[in-house]
Design a protein around this nucleic acid. Structure first.
Length: 547
RNA sequence: GGCCCUGUGGUCAAGCGGUUAAGACGGAGCCCUCUCAAGGCUCAAUCUCGGGUUCGAUUCCCGACAGGGUCACCA
């Protein structure tokens, strides 16, 4: 068979470059010996999720801790699944979490020498190589229809054979020259398949950067490399792109491990040296009593928007992910509480081999801790940016009074250092936490544990003696002085020594006042709260709480 | 079902032939204390199961079991 003629009949482009040219167009990168070139290669199919961020972080850290390059490539080979604005969304979302690309699609950079970074725009490159493969007898056209393929698969399933297009099932593999040209003349659609040279009898031992030695079976499937629309499949595009974009480390989910034999063979027939691979475990979630991969459809917490709306501190999400990525990060972080996570020595090899259950509790803890480290001013800025986007009208009005809120935050956060509080977990919850500092959102729950006469007595007596000029100790002395009036102990030690002798103690007096002023039985320092509210409002609240 | 990956407390996990089997989150308790938070201290809780190899296995090998992934003209 005249393969050259066949190749020209199948791949009709007339402007393809000789394949050797591409080695010159995309030369080896100049880089340090250990510098890794990594990439994030999402398909623009929807919105970026936590798994992408997780993977992006591993890529970004691998590149930047070694002095390498991290770029963005868009895998848009499946037109059906394309969503407008997805690329911008990827870049924006990652930026929100502090991750930037050095190079790639929609990235303004002088490094952009390995583009185009959209696979659809690289069609000529792929076709040049497919054509070469056909000429070398390593690829062939397949005219099988979907129905025929399904029928074969059903038969294979029934006979308990391995499914797929291989060996005796590869009908079009040995089509005669005239059959091919006849089909072509009839205008039958076709795909190009790899003519696999492998055999499942052979095992390949391959070294994964995370999993270590992995034993796989050689590929014998005649996989599709060029779809009927002339666009390559993922497998083929991956081999070409990661070679010519000079990627050194491919980090991807472990769901790709099973197609590794295909990729190995593809690299081999194309004459490329494969990159190093790192197959990461997926983020899992508990569903009933079994684990499963976090799913886009079922789990809202997979969406990055979820974290933005809930007002998680972006750095906290990143730090949480870092603890899963390299478990010794947590220890490092404890030793360097104010350190930048970028100073941590991230290594892809330290990644865990088993899938981690996503732990929202731990994220919450990290988020609380990170927010507690902010100054009241920075915390205000963080909450304000959340309020601007997701807050109610009341929130927006409140946040116009920056000075007042900063005063409130200084209290809530225990500013000053030693008595730091961790009350704010997320912006959404933090904003609700300060509602009682504003009259329009003050929604008290007057559930007192004492009779009305006692409550009123405490309220009235304290209102009479309250003086905003009092410092904390004078303020508290006054609270204590009320106790004996209603048969409460003014000293805790007294009360503990003989609880039967009293109806209550100072803390109960304070509780009555606290419920009146804040509407809740628990709060930060009451004296300071009254101070921030001011005399008039404080007294008004004491009055309003009378039974 | 075939193939591949994984298997240490509730969760994330350190460990790499001999350890009282780290640490963190969560839980319980105590202290501190006007409540809460924070902080300090203490406690409970783990090597999936069989066989080997070895003087000795959580660690190495084999098998079972369990969980996960994958078997497209989707990535």
């Amino acid at each position: 068979m005249d393969l050259k003629k066949l190749a020209s009949a199948l791949i009709t482009d007339t402007d393809l470059l000789p394949i050797e040219e591409y080695e010159k167009i995309y030369p080896e990168r100049v880089r340090g010996e250990k510098a890794e070139v990594t990439r994030l290669a999402p398909s623009p199919t929807g919105f970026i999720h936590l798994g992408n961020l997780y993977s992006a972080l591993a890529d970004e850290r691998s590149a930047h801790t070694t002095g390498g390059v991290f770029y963005l490539r868009i895998e848009d080979t499946d037109e059906k699944r394309k969503v407008d604005g997805a690329v911008e969304s990827v870049i924006r979302s990652l930026k929100y979490f502090g991750i930037d690309f050095d190079e790639g699609a929609e990235i303004d950079s002088p490094l952009n020498k390995y583009g185009p970074y959209y696979q659809r725009q690289r069609a000529k490159i792929y076709r040049a190589f497919v054509k070469d493969l056909i000429e070398r007898g390593l690829a062939y056209p397949c005219f099988c229809t979907e129905d025929e393929l399904n029928a074969v698969r059903d038969k294979q399933t029934q006979e308990k054979k391995t499914t797929g297009y291989y060996g005796e099932y590869a009908k079009c593999r040995n089509l005669s020259e005239e059959e091919i040209y006849k089909n072509l003349a009839e205008g039958k659609p076709y795909v190009i398949r790899l003519k696999s040279q492998g055999s499942v009898e052979n095992k390949i031992i391959f070294r994964d950067a995370i999993k270590g030695e992995v034993t796989v079976t050689e590929n014998d499937q005649d996989v599709v490399i060029l779809k009927s629309d002339g666009i390559p499949t993922y497998h083929f595009a991956h081999a070409i792109d990661d070679h010519f974009m000079r990627t050194t480390l491919v980090i991807r989910g472990e769901e790709w491990l099973s197609s590794l034999p295909v990729h190995i063979e593809l690299h081999k027939v194309l004459g490329f040296k494969p990159p190093r691979y790192a197959h990461t475990c997926s983020l899992m979630k508990m569903d009933g009593d079994t684990k499963r991969k976090l799913s886009k459809r079922k789990d809202p917490e997979l969406s990055l928007d979820y974290y933005r709306k809930a007002g998680y501190f972006p750095k906290a999400v990143v730090k949480y992910l870092m603890t899963i990525l390299n478990s010794d990060f947590e220890e490092w972080s404890l030793k360097n509480p104010d350190g930048d996570y970028r100073d941590f020595k991230f290594r892809i090899e330290k990644m865990g081999k088993s899938g981690a259950l996503f732990d929202l509790e731990k994220l919450n803890d990290i988020s609380r801790t990170e927010i507690s480290k902010l100054s009241p001013e920075d915390c205000f800025a963080f909450l304000k940016s959340w309020v601007d986007e997701f807050g109610t009208d009341a929130d927006k009005a409140h946040f116009k009074d920056e000075k007042y809120i900063i005063k409130v935050l200084a209290l809530i956060m225990g500013a000053g250092g030693k008595k730091r509080r961790k009350d704010i977990e997320r912006a959404e919850q933090g904003v609700r936490l300060i509602d009682y500092f504003f009259d329009d959102t003050f929604k008290p729950d007057y559930t007192f544990r004492f009779d009305d006469a006692t409550v009123n007595c405490v309220l009235d007596v304290f209102a009479d003696m309250y003086d905003p000029a009092d410092d904390n100790s004078v303020w508290f002395a006054k609270v204590k002085s009320i106790a004996p009036l209603i048969g409460f102990a003014s000293e805790m030690s007294e009360y503990k020594a003989n609880p039967e002798a009293f109806k209550g103690n100072v803390s109960d007096v304070a509780e009555i006042l606290r419920i009146a002023v804040t509407g809740m039985p628990n709060s930060p320092d009451l004296c300071t709260i009254m101070n921030i509210l001011g005399k008039e409002r404080s007294l008004a609240r004491l009055r309003a709480a009378r039974r």
